[in-house]
Every structure is written in structure tokens, then in C-alpha cells.
Amino acid sequence: MVVTDMDGTLLNSNHDVSSKFFELFKDLKQQNIQFVAASGRPYYSIVEKLQPIKNDIIIVAENGGLIIKNENVLLSNKLNPNRLLELYKLVTNLENTYPIFCTKNQAFILRASDDLINTFSEYYSVYTIIDCFEEITDDIIKIALYHTTNSEAQIFPLVKHLKPELNVVVSGNHWVDISEAITNKGNALTFLQKQLNITPSETMVFGDYNNDLEMLKCAKYSYAMENAHPNVKAVADFETESNDNNGVELVLEQLITESRKH
């Protein structure tokens, strides 16, 4: 099984998947290697990026809050509804922080400028603009908090007290994500390994940010991108080229060459 994060990993800086990857995917499929896209992105956004192969892969969305295969939901971790109002009040009172309430099929964005909504729509292409909590109509899987400069320095210190009752993770330079305590990509990957009867020694993982740490620990072949956060490089066993230099594809080429020998 090959598992890769999306932003900063499989996607280049323009948020695109290379045509080379789609070519290599045919070989993975031929070799009977299961491909899993594991991202902080919502399900519908990952599907947009991997449209040509969406029926042949497993999607782990919202940092492990949702696992979907062929439109069948295998796992869904919703935030406890009894805590939502309290969380809503907390995150909407943080200065220079823009909360997005993520559900399976859409995002609910609290008042934001057109420029910001344009930025968000790269990740959350299906959204509703809201003015109050009552307008959120679906189960919330994750709250994503966006900061215009640095989420790790500016947002994380103000919400880290929510741990360990909730999972609070810096998932990108601009993003901090809040979800149920059990929600992370590692638990999602462990769930899939059990379901598919695939061991960690048969698993290869690629990642670049702190929301990838748990899943990197679930694989014998764990790769940090050259552009990865220092925490990721410390945990991963191997390193590959950056996301703009086809780091994932380079390793997959080697994997396919090796598996053809066996």
C-alpha cells in the first residue's frame, strides 16, 4: 500500500498532480498496490485533484476524519455536537484567524474577504458563507483555522490547551486543524491496514507536515519530502526530493522497478 499526503507532497506548488504520477499509477494498479490519498483537504477536493483514478483509490480526508472508497464511507469521526458551540465561540474570537467548519460535502466559512474566500476555495471548493453558528446544518468533522502569515506561531498557542481532549495539529504554514482526539492520519491508516490485511512492512508513506507524523510511524517505508517540516524529517526513515521535483514519483518509479523483479 502506498499512502501519500497531498499539499506539499503529491501536489506541486501550483496545487497540481503531475501527469507522470497518473502514468505511474497504472503500474501501481497493475502490481496490485493499493493507493491511498491522505490529506487535510475535504473529500470532494481530493476527488477533484485525482478525478481520473477516483474509483481505484481510497481517500482519507480531513486528516483522517473521513475514509471513503468508491463513495462508500468506511469511517467518519464527527466532532462531538455538545462541544461545538463552545468551540465556535472560541475560534471565532481569535484575532486574525479565519475558521472554516468542514463537513463531508461542503465547508461553512464565517465572514471573510473575497480574496480570502478565493484562497480557501482552492481547498474548499464547495462552501456556504455563514454569519452565525445556527447556519451550520451538517455534522462537523473538522474545524480548520487559517492565519494569513503563520499558524504555528499565531494560532496554535491559543488553541493547544484543547489537547488531549481534541486533536489540535498544525497542518500547514497557514493552517491549524481541530478534530476529535482519535482523528489523525495514523489511526486512519491503521484502520485500513487491518481492513485490507496489509502490514506496516508492506506500507509506504509520504508526508511533509505535522499532520503526517502519525501515519509516517505506521509504515516501514516512511518518506519526508525535501520541503518537509523538521518534525517530519526527524520521524521519517527516508527523504526524497521536494514536491516541485517529483519526489513522490521518483520513489514510486523505484518501487515499481523493484516489484516487477519479484
Rank of each mutant, 00 (worst) to 15 (best):
A219F: 03
K261V: 14
S39K: 01
P157F: 06
D16Y: 12
A38I: 11
T149Y: 13
L216V: 09
G64C: 05
A181K: 14
N32H: 15
S222I: 09
N93E: 10
L252F: 01
K142W: 04
T190L: 15
S13W: 02
N246T: 06
N70A: 13
V47R: 06
L87W: 07
M215A: 03
Y146L: 02
E239W: 00
A61W: 01
K89M: 11
I136V: 13
A236L: 02
H174R: 08
F206Q: 00
I117W: 01
K233E: 09
N72C: 06
V205W: 03
G64S: 07
C132P: 00
K104R: 11
I178M: 07
V170K: 07
N72S: 14
V91N: 03
D27L: 13
I100W: 00
N231V: 07
T119R: 07
I57N: 07
L250I: 09
K261P: 04
N96H: 12
Y98V: 04
E135C: 08
V232L: 01
P230N: 10
S201F: 14
A107D: 11
I59V: 11
P200Q: 13
K220M: 11
L85W: 00
G40H: 05
F156Q: 07
T148A: 15
G207M: 08
Q195P: 01
I67Y: 07
N70Q: 15
E62D: 12
D27T: 00
N167P: 02
P230A: 07
H161A: 12
A112P: 00
M225I: 08
L162Y: 12
V248W: 04
W175I: 08
D244S: 08
D114K: 10
E86M: 09
D244W: 00
N55G: 13
G65F: 03
L85D: 04
F108M: 03
N77V: 00
T183R: 05
L158T: 13
I53C: 02
V36L: 09
S13C: 09
K160M: 13
L24G: 08
E180G: 08
I198Y: 10
K142R: 02
N118T: 10
P164I: 05
S121A: 11
L250C: 09
L10G: 01
A181W: 01
R41V: 11
I46M: 14
Y98N: 06
I178P: 08
K29N: 15
L192F: 12
S179A: 08
I140T: 12
E134H: 11
D244Y: 07
S125E: 05
K194Q: 15
Y43V: 00
E226A: 15
E226K: 12
L87M: 09
L116E: 10
Q254P: 08
D138T: 02
S39I: 07
S45F: 03
G172W: 06
S125Y: 05
F35W: 11
L74I: 03
C218K: 14
I198P: 01
R260L: 09
F156D: 01
V126E: 11
K29H: 14
K49L: 06
T199D: 15
I33R: 05
Y44C: 06
L252A: 04
N227C: 10
S125M: 04
S259W: 14
D139Q: 12
N231I: 04
